[in-house]
Amino acid sequence: MNHLTSRLLQDTARGWLLASDKVYAVMAVMILILGLLTGLMLLTARRLSALEKQVESLEKSES
């Protein structure tokens, strides 16, 4: 199992990070940053719009 994990790690590293011109590493960095940041922002925006709808309907029922 350990051998398999280590092989998997090595292959991943070789394929993604150790390409000769190292451009894949730049892409990995970019995907990591933008994926995480935009993902978090989209999730927050979704929750925010759901809450805004809730507040709106509560205000309507109140009036």
């Binding site: 990070l17 990995a28 990591l32 940053i33």
Partner: peptide, 13 residues
């Protein structure tokens, strides 16, 4: 994110 990107950079370079 700064730490993660730094790790990738030091790994390849």
């Amino acid at each position: 994110l700064g730490l993660a990107t730094g790790i990738i950079w030091s790994r390849v370079s």
